[in-house]
Amino acid sequence: MTHDHDHSHGHDHDQTFQPDIEDSPFTHHQVMAEALGELLIEKGVFTADDLRRQIEHLDSRTPALGAEVIARAWTDPDFKAKLMENVNEATASIGIDSGDIPIRAVENTPETHHMIVCTLCSCYPRGLLGPPPDWYKSRAYRSRTVREPRAILSEFGTTLPDDVEVRVHDSTADLRYLVLPMRPRGTDGMDEADLAKLVTRDCLIGVSLPDNPGGV
């Protein structure tokens, strides 16, 4: 996001308070965030350009990249094998940078459904999907998912038979997790681009299933 109001001195003020859009008073932490960035630039820890580029990079990490990766895995068995072995290397092989923090894929099957949580903070495969949604960071999701995953699933409109194993992954340590959903039935003729449209962010966390274009 850029804007063109000017300041009388030379710092980069991208991402600052925008009086024309925002009417509520700024908060203590917004001021601190601005001040921290400016101080670190003045001290040469990084440049204004580094900061701008990093924000652009963050903006470019989205669930759409995740969907693209899943659609590729559904259509290319070799890629899927690579993805199950090492997500970061697999995505790099199709030109998607998913960062340095190791991401692992867990594959949904008719027997096992995976869902991801971080009960201790809100660890998430940011390097690929961007920042987590607010609900993922909520006390409710972080508290309840390991104890009543099926109740959580039903709040997202997802119901699974009792004999399916619901497997919750608590990303407590150095790894981040990505769910590889099952390819819906009735999608045999679809190409990668159309398949990617069926994969939402919530499918990649495991609280939803991809839309089934056939209806059942």
Partner: peptide, 23 residues
């Protein structure tokens, strides 16, 4: 990997449900 029934005495979900945690 933990069986949910080993984590929670009153677990209400499916009998095969599990949680995986990294240690």
């Amino acid at each position: 990997i933990f069986r949910q029934s080993d984590l929670w005495a009153d677990y209400q979900g499916g009998p095969k449900d599990t949680t995986v945690v990294d240690f």
